[in-house]
Design a protein around this nucleic acid. Structure first.
Lengths: 204, 204
DNA sequence: CAGAAGTTCTAGCGGTGCTAGCGACAGAAG
DNA sequence: CTTCTGTCGCTAGCACCGCTAGAACTTCTG
């Protein structure tokens, strides 16, 4: 233990670490599954412990608290959204902006619990300064790339924030059944039309 | 009791009803104050009962449960937002759309707990069909009126939904510190510019 | 094998939303 | 004035929550 570590010891240490990492992953996965199946209200530390077949205190040896677990699920979700946005390439005649918007809204519609953890529940994820998770930067970066072709002379970052805010607003209000479903298509058309070729290019 | 009620009885009945209505109002007010002072997490039935100086079960003789109390606060909040929007008249050179947007965002910024109850927490308020509270219709109506001058040939209701969604997205993402504060002004300018005089009027 | 080190579990704390059932009190009847 | 009756608010308690101290078990070391 002191100087040269013996062979078996290191190997066992490695196995332990691997098993621990695997269990860490298992907890996050179980939390996500439980939330997606029954909503975040159903994700209690007891039920989660049951699902991973350990006792509650084990959760606290991996995460500081329940919030940290939700945060881990949220960050993983950001990675997935980023991946979806990256893979979504427009077919001919489709604008990149539209494909991004549809992908984003489909994600929010099909994974409402995941979306909630990412963008609705306040989670103390350090957005502003400091350690912003890479997954988040990736997702936002994809939105920036989708907005870029229509930016004209407008501030790219601010325009992306507007785009994102609009999508986020639609996503959450739709989820809360606060918008008319029959206007879904028209609504998106109007948003894309407004953001795209605008009168900001040059004004005589 | 049976047929002709005696005079005194009716009067007492009235007093009782008045007192009961007053207490009802008091509970809603206390819940709103507590939420605005310390957030909705601090609004527990015990603390609320303490604040109104009754025991917990009294709350349940007025409301079906805690959710119903939050809902009552939310509906009251909608009324207040509607009133603010109605009173907000543009000074010269200011578009009605801009005034509405600024009023809406200021409300969300200054009354975050109230805004949360209204539009973020899911609350089973019947938005779609059925008994939509008048306060809600009023608030949405004010947004429609603000959008109307810039509608062009676009679907008024859908365009209002887009406007509202964008404001809602900005409001919630700002509250969660997920947007850059230094872009606040630019962001709103971009949104209003995009929604206003668009290229949709007529296309050659 | 005994002891040390590390890990997991049992049990419990103070809190939550909510409710059963008791006791006090006001109005009606005699 | 007494007695009955029905309403009303309270005490006390349930099942659950997030979280943790300390016992109990396993595993490695000498």
């Amino acid at each position: 233990m002191s100087s040269g570590a013996r062979f078996g010891s290191v190997s066992i240490q490695n196995r332990r670490e691997r098993e621990r990492a695997e269990r860490h992953r298992l907890i996050i996965e179980a939390a996500r599954e439980l939330a997606e199946a029954e909503g975040w209200d159903a994700v209690t530390t007891r039920r989660l412990a049951d699902k991973v077949e350990y006792s509650q205190p084990v959760l606290y040896s991996h995460f500081k608290g329940k919030d940290a677990i939700v945060r881990a699920v949220a960050i993983e979700g950001c990675g997935e959204l980023a991946r979806l946005l990256r893979q979504a390439r427009p077919s001919r005649g489709e604008s990149r902006l539209r494909v991004a918007a549809e992908t984003y809204l489909r994600f929010a519609r099909e994974r409402p619990a995941l979306y909630d953890a990412m963008f609705v529940q306040q989670s103390d994820i350090p957005w502003g300064t400091g350690e912003v998770p890479q997954e988040l930067l990736d997702a936002f970066g994809e939105l920036v790339a989708a907005v870029e072709p229509v930016r004209g002379e407008r501030d790219l970052e601010a325009l992306t924030e507007v785009f994102w805010s609009s999508l986020h607003g639609i996503a959450t209000l739709v989820q809360g059944k606060r918008l008319r479903p029959e206007l879904d298509e028209t609504r998106l058309d109007l948003l894309l039309g407004a953001l795209s070729l605008a009168q900001h290019e040059e004004r005589p």
